[in-house]
Nucleic acid binder design. Sequence first.
RNA 1: GGCGGCAUAGCCAAGCGGGAAGGCAGAGGACUGCAAAUCCUUCAUCCUCGGUUCAAAUCCGAGUGCCGCCUCCA
Length: 475
Amino acid sequence: MSLQLYNTLSGKKEEFIPLRGKQVGMYVCGPTVYNYFHIGNARPFLVFEVLRRYLKYKNYDVTYVSNFTDIDDKVINKAKEMGCTYSEVADRFIKEYFQDADYLNIGRADFYPRATEHIADIIGLIQRLEEKGFTYVVEGDVFYDISNFKEYGKLSKQNLDEIKIGARIELDERKKNPYDFVLWKKAKEGEPKWDSPWGAGRPGWHVECSAMSAKFLGESFDIHAGGEDLIFPHHENEIAQSEAASGKIFAKYWMHNGYLKIDNRKMSKSLGNILTIRELSQKYDGSVMRHFLLSAHYRSPLNYSLEQMEQSKNSMETLNNTVYNFNFILKKNLGNSATDRKSKKLSDTVDEMVEEFNAAMDDDFNTPKALSTLYLLAREANIYLNEVPDKNKEVVKKVLQFYKDFGTTILGLKYLSELDEQEQISKEDIEQLIEKRERARKNKDWQVADQIRDKLNSLGVIIEDTAEGARWKKH
RNA sequence: GGCGGCAUAGCCAAGCGGGAAGGCAGAGGACUGCAAAUCCUUCAUCCUCGGUUCAAAUCCGAGUGCCGCCUCCA
């Protein structure tokens, strides 16, 4: 079974063959840190980190790099607004980034390079481009001359002659070609600046990714990913810089996720229709948001709505219940080692689901299809729970292991199966009340039994009577 | 003007030439002292019109609708 990934560069699904055996280098464009990030920004962060989890599961040794753009106009403006330095803004929102990323259970990258910490590398890269004749300087600004890079447009499939007609390009008289872009920006009065051979200034946006990816992953690496709005010009420019400087292929696979939309429009800071993770975390569990973001294929557009979030919430609930109900068997220390046909069948179903899960993920990382295996198993597993009085302990464990390995380790979903948070009532008190209720039920004293159930309910504890005794959970 | 994406049930979403997955919601039923959880049943002329094929949601052509990139944007 081999992994197929859609490569924006070729416009096709391709077999994934890393450049260096089992070593995989992955670079995902990270945020400009001047604000909280929103659920649209979250999509690539989350989705490509799931790809990394899956690659790890497939025994690849992944080096995952995600940058922080900590110097640019937006950061500088924010600093003015907040009355502090640009680096205070960056530090602050990097901290906020991690809080939200953790909430979404986005795994940590191996490296989080910051542009301002790699000024020397950036200058070095620009110098190489200068030596090779890809730059020109106007009034202290260093530009990249795209006319010298013959393959310009190969990622976005833009034809230079035709994009010139583009309606919205802002003409900068100093540029030789409208699509030339700034590598080094001369400092304006009062702006943060670094010394360079071209005078004091700061790096342009695209150049940091070229410099930092080379530093951490080498001049050629495997996967470069981000939102599809980065294809042009950001990633196109990165290719132009990196390949012109090194003479080598930059990234082998380019992956881009579709937009997160709201009211059927792209969610973006410039449109002002954003919902931050911080806001949403007030309302929804991180796993519910993950479920939502993984419920569509990463390349498809995904529309945010309240109804969608409710659906994801309910869907997670089904998974939570199944996992919880299986854990209950172990907690009660029930189950034997007998082998019967139904246990065997459930065990086989788990094996089938493992295969289906892998097949789905191998096919361009199809998370919605992969998710469906969790539900298919849930049905079989719940039937087993209802129909088989003597559960086979190993099978019960195997089911739980499936949910852990694929649901949690790969997809990053956490099940609300255990009591957490601060308790209004202790575990012991709950167990005591349940025992009391069990006695009442034996005596058919329904009134007392229901009173206890109502009381627990008001404390957020739900009672479920089963053949194995009363089960309880927090809601 | 150039480049690209999407269109499958009430909602979401797989599917890539031969049985229309899965989830959510709804309806009915089973189980239960009543519940909860769970299970069962039920719910699709695959945007339109042509074409190719023994066979098309799937391929080709022409439309229609929606979204996006070409300016900062994930």
